[in-house]
Design a protein around this nucleic acid. Sequence first.
DNA 1: TATTGTTATACTCTATAACTATA
DNA 2: TATAGTTATAGAGTATAACAATA
Lengths: 145, 145
Amino acid sequence: MSSRLREATSSLAYLLKHAQLQLAELTGPALAPFGITGRELAVLLTLTGCEPASQQQAAQRLGVDRTTMVGLVDALEDKGLVARRPQEGDRRRNVVELTEAGRDTLRRAGSAAAEAERQFLAPLSPAAAAQFTESLRTLVPPPAT
Amino acid sequence: MSSRLREATSSLAYLLKHAQLQLAELTGPALAPFGITGRELAVLLTLTGCEPASQQQAAQRLGVDRTTMVGLVDALEDKGLVARRPQEGDRRRNVVELTEAGRDTLRRAGSAAAEAERQFLAPLSPAAAAQFTESLRTLVPPPAT
DNA sequence: TATTGTTATACTCTATAACTATA
DNA sequence: TATAGTTATAGAGTATAACAATA
């Protein structure tokens, strides 16, 4: 492989980028009926994963900047899916919690996103799909917190 | 999986995104000594893959817009790595070819990028790494042209 | 009329720096 | 002084529309 030139479309960077684009093309339309984007669903998933978390904790877990999280929570709050309240004991922090509507949307949109993932992985055998996901988990380190 | 909630950091979208980020963090510094970015290396690889190609053909093969390719070729031309010339027979087209310096940079930078990919895949067994790449190729359709 | 390259423009995602309020 | 949230700003990356040259 050191002497033979690989095509650009065979490089890992190309494949990862276009895999992501392709998954996004399935996920976007699947989530549209629920009025949220894939990123917003990820925020909802993060918030429900660990119990009442501050914005910054959620940001670290998602791997986005805290300044980015502000806008994401803003949008979800405008849609009535989450609520902010100052944390008692340390009022610098905002605790972000899902509303009832947020939990409902998460349930239904999460199911739609899971279906999009299944569709994305459909070209692989079930065993290959499972190992593909498992390899990704091995390659991507879990978030710090 | 339909009833049990997955964590956001387990979703395929999260894993693909962060796999890409992690690879980019290895590839970027590896290419810095050669004065090119990962995207620019991809363009060089694309141009060398199929013989003298127009900008638009290269753009399709890379999966980027033709307006994006203008800037990429501009940068590579400024660095003396590629040269544009009108195609004889159809002067609307620009044929983009690697210069001697471009071929030399491609050889050395391509080797560095391959090493970065090996480093990225190192947490996987050789067999798992091979199947991971193969699965990606199955999931990502080859470019139109 | 259609196509290639180009420019201008805008939109998304992201990060950095500076501000505020709390600690 | 340090931290959490916020705002403003700037930088990538991308796409759309419009234009010039050519077919």
